[in-house]
């Protein structure tokens, strides 16, 4: 699998795919996309990187253990639901606010936090499975 072309293009492809996955994640609320599909795209990006260049560069690039990323995602999702308790509405009720971002009104909500959590869980779990399987030097 380690052809020269693949190895050279893989990092760029990965970067593009990760960017795209974030795009898909953020637009998910109104257009096709969302955390789950975004996470899958990012996971396949890292899987490709791993196949092309080996597992250790991916692990270095990710910095955190993929499972830790997954756990972080679950924590984010769960906490985004807890926020609603402070406003005396049931657990996981979506709360919305508009933030003025450099003069641009941006809708912000606990729902997008939740979706980001989903993104990380999927990304982390699938990546950790893929990387563990790709790690052939221990086999």
């Amino acid at each position: 699998m380690r052809t020269l072309i693949f190895r050279t293009t893989a990092p760029y492809l990965t970067a593009l795919m990760v960017l795209f996955s974030i795009f898909v994640l953020l637009r998910g609320h109104n257009e096709p996309g969302g955390g789950f599909i975004g996470g899958l795209i990012a996971a396949s990006a890292f899987a490709i990187y791993g196949i092309a260049c080996g597992v250790s560069p991916v692990r270095r690039a990710l910095y955190f253990h993929p499972m830790a990323i997954s756990a972080f995602g679950l924590l984010v999702s769960a906490t985004s639901g807890v926020v609603s308790l402070f406003f005396d509405v049931p657990f996981l009720t979506g709360l919305w606010t508009t933030i003025d971002l450099l003069g641009l009104p941006v809708d912000f909500s606990t729902v997008i936090l939740f979706d980001i959590g989903v993104y990380f869980v999927v990304l982390g779990s699938i990546t950790s499975i893929a990387l563990a399987l790709e790690e052939r030097e221990h086999a």
Binding site: G28, E31, G34, G35, G94, W96, V111, V118
Partner: peptide, 14 residues
């Protein structure tokens, strides 16, 4: 209610 046009996604996250 959920401020989203993508029904699938709104169902999933909200």
């Amino acid at each position: 209610i959920a401020h989203g046009r993508n029904i699938v996604n709104v169902i999933i996250v909200d």
